[in-house]
Amino acid sequence: MAIALRQPSVIPGFGITLGFTIFYLGLLIVIPIAGLLLYTLQMSWDDFWRAVSDRQVVASYKLSFGASLIAALINLVFGAIVAWVLVRYRFTGKRIVDALVDLPFAMPTAVAGIALVTLYASTGWVGQYLNVYGIRIAYTQIGVIVALTYIGLPFVVRTVQPVLEDLDKEAEEASAIMGANRFTTIRRVILPALLPALLTGFALAFARALGEYGSVIFISGNLPFRTEITPLLIVAKAEQFDYAGAAAIAAFLLLLLINGLQWWASRRYR
């Protein structure tokens, strides 16, 4: 079968590596997810639709998608600046700064959540000064955005950085020789080259933010209709023995994401 599927090659190990990959993926990923989808198939269409389109659930989608989008946009802008600064400029402590970017990958989300709420609660290190101006971060939608920005921060930086390093200086120089000013060069030469990496980083940060739970529950007010994210709602439903409702929302999100992912994968590994 393998031979019919693939083009001939001298490199060995196709059958065994592909076989193991499919076996492991099947056991750990495909069967469980198929289980979830089958579980929701036990519901009638009306029940399913009611579960995923309830007003409270829709409000949570709005918050989850909206906050994830804003957080990913913040990361797109600032992540690009950070990557640019790290690749193109010299300053003291650059190596440490560069290393620190990975912190949200390495720091557990629950720890991050507790740390962020300690900072941004109205009694916190930063929050008390903001509170003077009537700005509240913890327990508001802004708090959700702060947490999601934190966890998505490395994605844009780390996808843009290598592309920027490999970027051919000659194209910039050519552009300069032909009389373009720096701004035009950045807009016409550098930005287009960075665009795929920027989009990838943005998509990754967005997807990660959408499912985030650990850090957000500490800093969000968890108020239904206002500061309740979808993952929390899924947990709340499960805790009330409403597995069908929880599974329905989970499956609905999953189908949306799989579609998005496939679109992205088809772009990424053409």
């Binding site: 650990g214 899924i234 999953l254």
Partner: peptide
Amino acid sequence: LPFAISPVVVGLIFVIL
């Protein structure tokens, strides 16, 4: 795929199974 799935959903899936 696991990257795009919310951790709590992962837990839920295995409890259901």
